[in-house]
Write a protein that binds this DNA or RNA. Structure first.
Lengths: 158, 158
DNA sequence: CTAAAAATCTTAGTTACTAAGACAAATGTA
DNA sequence: TACATTTGTCTTAGTAACTAAGATTTTTAG
C-alpha cells in the first residue's frame, strides 16, 4: 500500500515538473509579447542581461547558435535599442555586445517586479528548513536532467 | 540577519527555478535530437501522446498554432510514421490525428525510462512529508506563474 | 614576410510558421 | 426543401529565424 502510494506520488511530482516547465515557457512568452519582443529575442536578451557584455563568438557558444544567427539577433536587439555593438579596444576583429540594461528594465522591470513580489510572498510562507529542502530538490533534479542530457549527447558524438 | 538570509535564499530559489526550466528545455532538445525529431515536433508529439487522438482543430486550439501550421506538423509526423490522419466517421470535414504510440515508444521509450529511473531513485530519498512539501511548492509556483501570465494577457486584450 | 587561424558579416537556402483564401461538408433559417 | 451561413482542413504567399558556406578583415604563428 505504501509502495503504491509512492508510485502515485512520484508520477504526480513528475507531472508537476513537466507542468512547471510548460508554465514557465508560457509565462515567458506572455512577458515577451507584452514587451513587444519575440520569444527568442526575449530569451537571449535575458541571457545577455544575466551574463553581461560579451563577444559575438562567446554568445554563439553560449546559445549554440551560429555566428550568422547571432548577427541577426544583435541586429534585432540593436534596432529596438536593447543592446549595442561596441568595438573591442584591443582586437579590431571583435565586437562586444553590450545590453542596454536601462532600456530593458524600462521594458521588463515592472513585469518581473510583479513576479518577484508574488514569489517572495509565496516563499515567505515556508520555514528555513522547508526552503532548504526545496532547494535540495531543485538542485538534485537539475543534476538528473543534466546527466540525462550529457548521456544523450555523448552517444550522439562517439 | 535573518531577513538578509531570507533574501539570499529567495534569490537562490528563483535562480534555481530559472535553471530548472532552462535545463528541462535543453534535455528535451537533446531527447528530440536523439530521436531524430525537431524540438517542435517532439514537443507536440508528446502533447498528442499525453492527450490522445484529437481533431486538427482541437490540436490548433491546444497549441495556439494556426490550422495551416497543424497541417504541416501532422504532415511531418505522418511522414515519420509517428501519427496518422483518420477520417471522422460522422463529419466528413473532420479528421482525427491519432498518435502512433508504439512507434513513439520505440523511439523515445528507452530515453524516458532512463529519466524515469533516475527520478524515481532521487524521489525515493525523500520522506512522504518532504514529497508533500515539494508538491506544495510546485503547485503554488505554477499558480503564481499562471497568475502572472493571465494578468499579462488580460492587459493585452482590454 | 607569409600562411594559417580567428571573428564577424553576408548570402543562399531551409524550416516552421501566420494570414488569407479555397473547397467541401454541416448547420441554421425561412 | 432550398439557400445562406458557418465550420473544418488544406493550400498558397509571405515572413521570421535559423544553418552552412563563403567573404573580408584582423590577429597570430612560424
Amino acid at each position: 500500500m505504501g509502495n503504491k502510494l509512492d508510485n502515485q506520488t512520484i508520477a504526480s511530482i513528475s507531472d508537476l515538473g513537466r507542468r512547471f516547465s510548460d508554465t514557465t515557457i508560457l509565462m515567458h512568452e506572455a512577458i515577451a509579447q507584452k514587451a513587444g519582443l519575440s520569444g527568442t529575442d526575449h530569451k537571449y536578451l535575458g541571457l545577455l542581461m544575466q551574463k553581461g557584455a560579451m563577444t559575438a563568438g562567446d554568445l554563439a557558444k553560449l546559445t549554440g547558435l551560429t555566428t550568422g544567427a547571432i548577427t541577426g539577433l544583435v541586429d534585432r536587439l540593436e534596432k529596438k535599442n536593447l543592446a549595442k555593438r561596441v568595438f573591442d579596444g584591443e582586437d579590431r576583429r571583435k565586437i562586444m555586445i553590450v545590453p542596454n540594461t536601462e532600456q530593458a528594465m524600462t521594458l521588463l522591470g515592472g513585469i518581473f517586479a510583479d513576479l518577484q513580489h508574488k514569489m517572495v510572498n509565496l516563499l515567505s510562507t515556508f520555514s528555513d528548513d522547508e526552503l532548504t529542502l526545496i532547494k535540495t530538490y531543485l538542485v538534485a533534479t537539475i543534476d538528473v536532467m543534466n546527466d540525462v542530457t550529457r548521456t544523450l549527447q555523448d552517444t550522439d558524438n562517439p
